[in-house]
Simulated assay, not measured.
Amino acid sequence: MREFSEDYLRRTRRGMWDDSREALAPLALESRSRILDVGCGTGELSRVLAAESPSGAEVVGCDADSALLEVAADCVPVVAGDAYELPFPDDAFDLVVCQALLINLPDPEAALAEFARVSSDLVAAVEPNNAAVSVDSSVDAEGDLERRARRAYLDGVETDVALGADARAAFEATPLEVLETRRYDHVRTVEPPYDEGAVVAARRKATGAGLADDRETMLSGGLTEGEYDDLRSEWRQMGRDVVEQMEAREYEREETVPFFVTVGHV
Rank of each mutant, 00 (worst) to 15 (best):
F88T: 02
A169N: 09
A152S: 10
G197L: 02
R151A: 15
C98P: 00
P108D: 05
D91L: 04
D160I: 03
L69Y: 00
L145E: 09
V78F: 07
L68W: 08
D63I: 01
A73Q: 13
A64N: 10
E177R: 15
T181H: 06
D155K: 14
L95W: 01
L105I: 05
L122E: 04
V59M: 08
E58G: 06
D82E: 13
S120C: 07
Y153D: 01
V79D: 05
A141G: 01
A162L: 11
P77W: 05
A170M: 01
V199Q: 09
L95N: 02
L101P: 14
A116N: 02
P77S: 06
V161H: 14
A201F: 13
R168V: 15
G143K: 08
F171I: 11
G81T: 00
A73V: 04
V157A: 12
V78Y: 09
A141C: 08
G56H: 08
A173P: 14
A92S: 15
F171S: 13
T189A: 14
V178M: 13
P106Q: 04
R204W: 12
A149Q: 03
E70T: 08
R150D: 09
G164L: 02
V60H: 07
T181R: 10
V118A: 05
E172L: 11
S137I: 02
A100N: 08
P192G: 06
G197M: 01
F93P: 00
A152F: 11
L163P: 15
C98D: 06
A198Y: 06
E180V: 11
P175H: 11
L122D: 01
V200L: 13
L69C: 02
R151G: 04
V123D: 03
A149I: 01
V79K: 09
A73P: 13
G156C: 12
V97F: 05
I103D: 00
C62G: 12
A152T: 05
A83M: 01
R188W: 13
A110I: 07
F93W: 05
A111T: 02
T159A: 12
A116Q: 02
G164K: 05
R147K: 13
P89E: 10
T159S: 15
E191A: 05
L176F: 10
V187W: 07
V59W: 10
E191T: 00
E158W: 12
T174F: 06
D166V: 14
A165Q: 10
V126I: 15
